[in-house]
């Protein structure tokens, strides 16, 4: 496992470098002059030229790429034009919120998806199966914003059980306070998180449940499951230790993909629930043509996808010795 991890990590480095280059080239391809954007419409050509010079925009592309790399290595992603702050800081503030939401939604998706999928597979072709798959059908066809608004109307506006908008303390910080004897912030954070996580996660839960069902049904028909029963193992053990572990393999890569989709999909959910995450920042950055910020956001997303990918591969190897040992 260690050698596999090292090999896989070694692959990560050139991949990350590739992503930096792609992100950098985006800037070259985007029409419009950053200097012109920066100075506004009234700027004279001379001012623009001077700024281009000051920003090093007239240097050859490889020199600029080199500078970009060097800066990135020191955690410097440039300055946001409109917020006049370091991009890294601006993104950092929002990143936590988005990751928190996406992870919470992923939890919803995994728990719901596995419970429904396993139940459907275990009682295949019974009413349990039908009920689970009807729910999944519903979940797949429900658009995020629609579900988000429904949830908000029901639980926030009508019943008043949960807040409709905003975010509490960052969950980790709140959990720390709870451990220190102050559970208030944690409860508040969770109450803010529930609705957006549900709205965002249900779709993926539905997709995962279908996949878990198919995969489980296939594995339950395998010879080694029969062997497990022939040994006299109890049913729950056969289901969990033998069937589920093998059924997990095709599901994991989809979970990874879903996490990517959740990170991206958070844009809509964030604006519905006023969640101060990267999604909202992205919309703002694009509408303001804040190119360094856009660049930073794109790179952040790309890195997150790459990390998710890495985690998927590693968990694959953890579960399947054929991957790990070749």
């Amino acid at each position: 496992m260690l050698t596999y991890t090292i090999r896989r990590l070694a692959l990560f480095v050139p991949m990350a470098a590739g992503m930096v280059i792609v992100t950098f080239s985006l800037l070259l391809l985007v029409p419009g002059d950053p200097a012109a954007v920066l100075l506004g419409q009234e700027a004279s050509p001379e001012d623009i030229a001077r700024l281009r010079m000051a920003l090093g925009l007239d240097d050859p592309w490889f020199a600029r790429l080199g500078r970009y790399f060097a800066a990135l290595l020191q955690g410097d992603m440039g300055r946001s034009i409109f917020q006049n702050q370091p991009v890294a800081g601006v993104i950092g503030e929002r990143l936590g919120a988005t990751v928190e939401l996406a992870l919470a939604a992923l939890m919803v998706a995994i728990v719901l998806g596995f419970v429904l999928g396993i139940a459907a597979a275990m009682w295949q072709a019974s009413w349990v199966d039908t009920a689970c798959m009807l729910l999944a059908q519903l979940g797949v066809s429900m658009p995020v914003y629609w579900l988000g608004i429904l949830l908000m109307l029901a639980f926030a506006v009508q019943l008043g059980w949960l807040p409709s908008i905003g975010r509490g303390e960052p969950l980790l910080a709140a959990a720390g306070m709870a451990l220190a004897g102050n559970p208030g912030p944690l409860l508040k954070s969770l109450s803010h998180l529930v609705l957006p996580a549900l709205a965002l996660g249900v779709n993926s839960a539905a997709i995962i449940s279908r996949l878990v069902r198919t995969s489980m049904i296939e594995v339950l028909g395998e010879d080694f499951v029969r062997t497990a029963y022939a040994k006299g193992l109890r049913r729950p053990r056969v289901i969990v230790r033998h069937a589920l572990r093998n059924a997990l393999l095709p599901v994991i890569s989809v979970i990874g993909l879903r996490f990517g989709a959740l990170l991206g999909g958070a844009v809509l959910t964030e604006s519905i629930f006023g969640w101060p995450g990267l999604g909202q920042l992205t919309i703002a950055a694009i509408s303001q043509r804040d190119i360094p910020l856009i660049q930073g956001i794109v790179l952040t997303y790309a890195m997150m996808f790459a990390v998710v990918n890495l985690l998927v591969d590693l968990s694959y190897a953890l579960i399947d010795p054929r991957v790990r040992l070749g």
Binding site: D223, A228, D320
Partner: peptide
């Protein structure tokens, strides 16, 4: 106890 025809598929691939 039972022994099956195809020992590869009859053993769990992810367990020693």
């Amino acid at each position: 106890g039972m022994i099956f025809q195809e020992p590869l598929t009859a053993l769990n691939p992810v367990m020693t």
